[in-house]
């Protein structure tokens, strides 16, 4: 699949933002007054910034409000609704802390759960797609939740949680890669079932329908850069998981913590780029491209 910048930025940043809101909502940190304002501002910068980035890949963002209507069937719509509700509930919780120096614990808990559900809905936009076997796996939502938790705990300075969640997320990432690499082969779809003309060994794409490229090839049969995939995977694990763990194990310092966060974010960007660039859509079978 085409790794659109807007979507990579959106899933990475909003994942971290909602992860932060999750830990803040649970009361892991209970800042008050100005400090609370700063904490919430950072969390909203990430979550809302990510959501705004996601509208950049819409061709008609002026109609975006319509996307809140089809939550009964559409994970994309559910994600939109959940994110707004989560942000509103957490805003109420934040207002209590900032202006009244009061902690409405239950509002925070509800906001925390909604934040988590938002990340889950984001992951289900991808995990629901039967057409992309690599994504359609239980490990996809787990991995998204893991990254959100790891990023959130890292950002809110929960060192113990961050260490555990980083390690867990590293494992989930590996699991997602391992299961994903064989997914297309196991999906049962091949050029034979796509055309109905015989077994995969008997059917060969002879001539494509068009001489130039088209939307389908650009969007869903993206192959550029896959040759660097192996190296990028290692880079993503080192930056996203390994280095932050080492930095957290070192004696605590604000510079080290900041470095851990930056390194983690770079690693997650790499992981998300791969998540899209390596995903094979079954429509490629019609072009003999799988």
């Amino acid at each position: 699949m085409h790794p659109a910048k807007s979507v990579i930025i959106f899933t990475t940043l909003s994942g971290i933002g909602f992860g932060m809101l999750f830990f803040i909502g649970l009361g892991m940190i209970v800042p008050e007054g100005l400090m609370a304002f700063i904490w919430f501002a950072i969390a909203y910068l990430f979550s809302v910034g990510g959501l705004i980035a996601s509208t950049f890949h819409l061709k008609h963002p002026e109609r975006a409000l319509r996307a809140f209507t089809q939550w009964k069937t559409s994970w994309l719509s559910r994600e939109g609704v959940l994110s707004v509700v989560a942000l509103l509930v957490m805003a109420a919780y934040g207002a209590g802390l900032v202006f009244l120096k009061t902690r409405w614990a239950y509002v925070g808990y509800v906001g925390a759960i909604l934040s988590l559900l938002t990340v889950f809905a984001t992951s289900m936009i991808y995990a629901q797609l039967k057409t992309v076997p690599r994504w359609r796996d239980f490990s996809t939502p787990l991995m998204f939740l893991g990254y959100a938790g790891a990023g959130g705990s890292l950002m809110t300075g929960q060192v113990d949680y961050a260490l555990a969640l980083l390690a867990l997320t590293g494992l989930l990432q590996l699991l997602n890669w391992m299961r994903g690499d064989g997914a297309l082969g196991k999906s049962g779809s091949d050029i034979g079932t796509a055309t109905g003309l015989g077994t995969a060994a008997q059917v060969r794409a002879f001539e494509p329908p068009h001489t130039g490229t088209n939307y389908l090839l650009k969007e869903m049969v993206y192959v550029v850069g896959r040759k660097h995939a192996g190296r990028l995977r290692i880079l993503s694990l080192l930056m996203g998981i390994g280095l932050p763990i080492l930095l957290l194990l070192a004696p605590f310092g604000h510079m080290l913590a900041a470095l851990a966060i930056v390194s983690h974010i770079v690693g997650v960007f790499a992981s998300r780029w791969l998540f899209f660039a390596q995903a094979e859509h079954v429509v490629g079978l019609y072009y003999g491209k799988r």
Partner: peptide, 20 residues
């Protein structure tokens, strides 16, 4: 008139029958 051009439906179609 209601389409925001998100492209998700084209991703969901196995046959490449939708083009933005």
């Amino acid at each position: 008139d209601a389409c925001i051009g998100c492209g998700l439906c084209a991703w969901a179609c196995p046959y490449g029958a939708r083009e933005l």
